[in-house]
Structures are given as C-alpha cells and as structure tokens.
Design a protein around this nucleic acid. Sequence first.
RNA 1: GCGGACGUGGUGGAACUGGUAGACACACAGGACUUAAAAUCCUGAGGCGGCAACGCCGUGUGGGUUCGAUCCCCACCGUCCGCACCA
Length: 872
Amino acid sequence: MASERYNAPARERHWQQVWETADIFRAANDASGPKCYVLEMFPYPSGRIHMGHVRNYTMGDVFARYKRAKGFNVLHPMGWDAFGMPAENAAIERKTHPAKWTYANIEAMKAQLKSMGLSLDWSRELATCDPSYYAQQQKLFLDLLAKGLAYRKSSKVNWDPVDNTVLANEQVIDGRGWRSGALVETRELTQWFFRITHYSDELLEALATLDKWPEKVRLMQANWIGRSEGMLVRWGLDKRSAPQGSTEIEVYTTRPDTLYGASFLAISPDHPLAKKAAEKDRKLAAFCEECRRMGTSVAELETAEKKGYDTGIRARHPLDKDWLLPIWVANFVLMDYGTGAIFGCPSGDQRDLDFARAYDLPVVPVILPPGEDAATFTIGTEAYDGDGTMINSDFLDGLDTKAAFEAVATKLEQKTLGDRPVGARKVNYRLRDWGISRQRYWGCPIPVVHCPSCGVVPVPAKDLPVRLPEDATFDKPGNPLDRHPTWKHVDCPTCGGKATRETDTMDTFVDSSWYYVRFTAPDAPTPVDARAAQYWLPVDQYIGGIEHAILHLLYSRFFYRAMSDAGHGAKNLREPFAALFTQGMVTHETYKSDAGAWLLPSEVRLEGEGGERRAVEIASGRPAAIGAIEKMSKSKKNLVDPDDIIAQWGADCARWFMLSDSPPERDVIWTEAGVAGAGRFIQRLWRLVEEMADKAAAKGAARPTEFGAEAEALRRTAHRTLDQVSRNIETLRFNVAVAQIYELANAISGMLSKSSAGLDWALREATEIIVQAIGPMMPHLAEECWARLGYNTLIANQPWPAAEPGLLVDDSVTIAVQVNGKRRDELTIARSAGNDEIEAAVLELEPVIRALEGRPVKKIIVVPQRIVNVVA
RNA sequence: GCGGACGUGGUGGAACUGGUAGACACACAGGACUUAAAAUCCUGAGGCGGCAACGCCGUGUGGGUUCGAUCCCCACCGUCCGCACCA
C-alpha cells in the first residue's frame, strides 16, 4: 500500500470532535476510586495564547492523560483569570467595554486551546469576572471581614502613577509596578487589607511539609516571610532632653548580645518621637521632609548616603542607668519594620559603622572573632557581625555569642522600667499584610457600604452580588466607579440613611487565590461545596511559571487557610497544592532590521550556518541583525504564533517539540529546525505504523511459544521503554521520556525488514506499546495509529499498558571492567554469576592482561551487575 | 552585600543511590535512491596521535576524599535567579 503523509491538522480536528462528542474528559464528583487533580495556572484572557501557554498546558495535559490511563479519576479544568487592567486599558483605547473585550478574548482563546487537543473538562469552565464567580468571592470577603481577617486601615502604600492604583508589596519589583513598570510612589491612604501576617508563622513552618515543591520556591517564600528572633527593648528617655510627654522609646533588635557596643539610637523620620521633636526644631523638620522625598527605588537606595540628624534627645542604656546615648533621626531606618527605632552597634553592623564613622560616634568592639587577640583587636572600616567571645561587655565578658544573647535576654526580661519589663522576646516578620484595594473598575467590588453614622457596613447577603455597573465611562483617568453618577449612592443597610458604596475593587490576585477550589464545584450556591472540596483537594499537581513563586502561590496558601478558617474548605487541609512544578520559559532569537526596528521571525529569512548565519529582512531584502535569545515577548517581537504552528504542523508537533530536548524546568529555545524535527518524527512513526498494520499476519496472531533472540531483544527494549517512560512522565521528566520513545522507534525500525513468527508478533507488540506511550504526548496521532492498527476503541480510554516484569531484567549483564579505575574492557556474563566466577573471567580478558603489564593484582572490587575494578 | 541554582561535544541535553561520560535529538559530513530536487534510508563523528589495533587526554579551573568522582568536600572563576538600608 502506498503511504500517504499523515495530515495532522485535518486528523486532529477529527479526533477533537470525537473526544468532544464522547465527552470523555468530564470529571465526576461522585466517582469512586483514587482521584487526581491536575491543574495548570489559568490564563489571563489577553486575546491570544502564546507559546508559554502551549508549553504549560502541554505538560499538564501529558500528566493528566497519563493519570487517566493509570485509572485515576482525573480533574483537569480550565478557566480565565479575567479581571484586570488590560481590559480597562483596552476599553480606554478602543472605546469598548472591558466585559465585551474580555469575553471576546475568552472565546478566541478557548478555540485555540481546543485546537491543542487538551483533555480538559470544559463543563467546569469559569471566568473570575463573571458575577456568578465574584458573588461567591464577595461572600468570602464578608466572612473574612467578620473574622477580622479583612480590615481597613490608613497606611503608607505603594502608588502606581501609571495604572493609577495602589499595589501590594509583592507587586512592587525593584521599586517599580509589576505591570506598568512605573516608579512607585508612596502615599498615605485608607485601604483594605487581608491579615496574611496572622499566618506568618504557619505559612513559614508549613513550607517544610511541601516536599513536592521546588526547593527554590520554598526558599523564596521563606525569605519573603523573613522571620527573625529578637527582642523589644525599652529605653528610658533623659527627662531634660525629651519632649513633653515622651518618657521612653522601644527598639527592636536581633542582637541584644551587642548591647554594650551601642553608641547611638536611630529612629525613622516617621517615628512619633521624631515628629514630636520636629515640632520644636525647624532644621529637624526639614531633615525629615528631605528623607521622605527620597525615593525608595533600588538605584536611589544604592547611591543614598547614610544621613542622620541628632535630635538632642538622650536615652538611658537599659543595662547602665548612667550611660546616656544620643537619639538620631536616620534616613535608613524604616518605620514599618520592627518599631521604627534601632540601637546602633557600629562594631557589629556595617551600616551602623558607616553611620558612626560619618558622624564621629564611638566604635566599641564587643565580639572578639575566634583567633583574634583582645588586646590588639580593633574595628577599622569593616564591622564584624559573626560569632565570637564577648568583650567590653560587663557581666557578659567571656561568654560566647549565643550564651550572651540568652544572658541579656533573661536580664532584660527581669529588669523593669516603670512597672513593666525592660525587654521582651519577640519574633518579627518581614511579611506585611496584603493590601487588596485597587482604585480600578474591572475587579471584584468590595461589598461594603460607608455610612456617616454606622461606619463600615457589610452588604447583606440578600443584596449580593454587588455588581459592577455596566454603564461606566472610561474616557477620564481615575476610578470609573468613584465618578459613576449613581452607582455608589445607596441607603445604609443598617440605618437606612444616605450612604456610599466602597468604590475600591479587589486585587485580581484575590480572584486567583481560590479558583482551584471553585473548580471542584463551579455551580455551587455557596463559595465552596464541602463534599466536592473534600474529595478533590488538594490539587495533586500544579504547574505554572516561576514568576508566581511568591505572589500567587503565597497568596493562595494564605487565602486557602483564611477561607477554611471562615468555614469554607476541606477538613484537615491547610495546603492547597500538594505538588508544584515551575516550568521554564519559551525563548527565541531576536531580529532587528538595519533601521533598528524589531522584526518578527516570520519577517526574516535565515541563511548560512554556524558562524556564518545571516538574517535577511524579507520585505526589504536588506540584512538584519541576529540578536540575543530571549523570552518571547511582544516588545522584542520574537514571537511565534501557536495558531500558525498548529495550522502548518499540527498540535501534536508543537506538543512533541515542547516536550523534547529541554528539561521542563529550564528555558526552551524555539527553533524552526526543532519543529521540523518533531514533524519528521510524526511522519516516521506514522509510516512505521502503516507498515506494521499491513503486516496482516501479526494481527491477532497467537503468541508464539518461542521468540528467538532478536524478537526477545525487541520485547525487552519495548517493555523497558514502557517502564521508563511511565516513571519519567510520573516525575515530569518529559525530555527523557521522549528520548526513550525515540530509542524504541529506532529499535522497531531496525527490525521491520526482517520477519519470523516471533519477530512479527514482537514487532506488533512493540508498535502498540509505542503508540500507547505517545498517547499522552501526541494524543491525536496516537488515536490515528490506534485506529490504523485495527482498533475501534479510543486510545484515550485505554488503560496504561503494564510492562512485563520478567522482561525488565536480563539473564546476562554487561559490566565494565576497569584496571586501576580505567575502563579497559567489558564483560558479558550471567546475571547470577558469583564474584569468584567474575574475577576469574576478568583476569582472562586480553585488555586486562595487557593493562596489568605483569604487575601483581592487589585486589579486585566487584560491584554486582555494575563494574569490576582490578587494582594492581 | 545576603541567599540559591547552574557550568558536560558544533548545539539542546542524557548518565539510576559514587560505578562503561556523551543516550536521544538538532546541526554537519559521506553514501544510496532520483534526470534533478524534495522526501526517505544507510553510515560516520568528543579531542589529540595512529593505516589500524590501540594509546593518551577529556564533564568551568585548582586541590582533596575514594579501588573508582559529571556526582561528595574545600577554594576559585563564570552565568542566571531571588532578596536587599529588615535592625
């Protein structure tokens, strides 16, 4: 029979239809048997999927299909992270409505995702901008409010002047807004917060239980939470110098052991004491003002000098009532960490040392590094912050650092100032509460009403959801909800008086903090269906980008706990994602025209090879520059459109290429050659299956009793491949699984020209195995091959084949033979051979005798089934 | 500055728990088929020396542990990532 090329795009549409009609990917909440919840981070509906999505969803799909074949009840849903700024910006630019823009995008992207052949349960599709979703989120908010986990406060916040909204700390990267890239300003505003700090310790501690998360992500979260153990220490103020009514100041320190090395106190320009002192000191007031104007961007911090101003106020050392220390206002002290006040120990802290040197303050060494002599040790330009032996420290002298910490801590806890202890042990966290207010339209409305007489009043359940008004205008900057003529004006639910709605909407990260829970029962009348959540959660395998290591993943860990504590979760579950995998980015070469404009890969023609590679701009015929390989981005135009690839090569080809070569956690370089290689393999596999299918004799033939050596070897290869592919899919090592499938394909090809009863049967078996093995990765091709092999079932419904254990182990093994650690030969011997037998055989090998050069053998090391080393 | 990861042929990468380094793929070269091309198939290849058998060298650099190190330890170099005036 003449082979025809496999027409991937056409056949893929066919099989997608078949799957959809059979509705085989719908997950049942009431199924018995083991469940497996596979989830990829849901996309923002920007309008088109990009290659990053293709990679992410392919990985998830391979895992989901594999688990399905392994007999799990798999939940593999998809939805849309649909609130957010781009919709609003589109509304401004194109004079459309965010909802219209968003839903049109969803429709387009859904079609694209479907063309990828993903095994998704579309019946659970949700969009976070849909009132049916955000209504439930508003209920959650109110329950958190009732629990004190949501609250309102005035504080300094990060203001993004381009997006005209507040940002959470996690959303400020290098002093810039995470979306807009604008330098963030500081503003004092009254905002809504989630009390994530209530869970600081739990979020940190529980990281240790997440053994299926990347170490890197856990570390990043631990650093972000930033736990430190220290003490709050109260210092009495010298009455003569202190402002009226100020009697003490409290500092936070992690190094109370260095208290005798203190030479000054420093407070933030925003510290109440600084403000009070500034009332009477114009120069100080000016200094504080100057500090506030200083930016907080990285560049500014790096160049900023340590600046201070002596308030003239003096504080009494907590361990020595006769020791007065100056209190300075310093530009490097942060009001929102600790107490906004520190004591400076210049010998033990580089920053304090710099400050002391600049203002000529005392530098007293209190910790003697190991190996140094107390008589000669001095601090020059470098502080010593390590451990050592205490010196110049009164009752602490001679103790080591840890013991000194304990001794001071105990003493400070016993000593009193006024009627309270001078010191108290305190654990501090870097983590701040999550500011969720956004001054934007396209987000979930915060369901409260502000009443002049009743204060903040929750919107009653019967009035939920608080819907976004559809007739908002986007022609002016600022919050469309705030300037809407009628929307915000309501009667107070409590007293009935005139009141106004909250016009802030929630950070979109709130939406994505619980969507995985909603997927378990997307139509439930309550936010969470307890039974469904209990059955499906936690997510068994979560896959997404590393960029969410802190943001989304920390928020979700918090929010899941908070909603559980408010009564919406699965019992005895604290962590929503049991296993996390962070995949690498998709990168591509960049091209620039001689006019300096970025060019799409499709706009250039590549010529030559190796060091001679050139790019030519097709339109102009002029040479173009080949630039660095970078993450695919609109700005650099190094984009390849998944639609084009799927139309030309098919989804299976794109999927296979995404899985090949690069380890999934690393970046993959998209190349035309790589895609073509994947395409070639598809055709090759198809030809192989056609040829097999035509070997009619093997189909349904009885299993031979004797196979013969070649058939036996092929069977071993096939079953070993099956075994290894299974394990590599299980551990998401797709590139290795792909390589093993190639090996099996090579082994089958090598045998195709030969024929015997045993070999025909083994070939048929091996072919069926390879078709099943590619099933999760290239599902359409697998169906096509399965059908071509004569089956009228769906391979998507076939159980994963089991490897025959007997074929995974050989009777004989080939082991390496070394002389003095250098490989000289190899030896094939019965697996059961004893050490004596192996030793004897090794010593007779010609290369061994030669390498020994007549020297006597000192000993022979035999590692069974691995290696033999003859030591001479 | 602090913390972490990584470094293997021309390229992407593989190597189980310390046990034959370079699987598999891409690119390349030679050959077959073809009027020709495409497609396909076969063969070759880490480097150096050698006709070959074979020998020597080889996983960023330098040391160490070990019968044996890509893997463990120490130091250094380079790349990438995260955090960063955090008291």
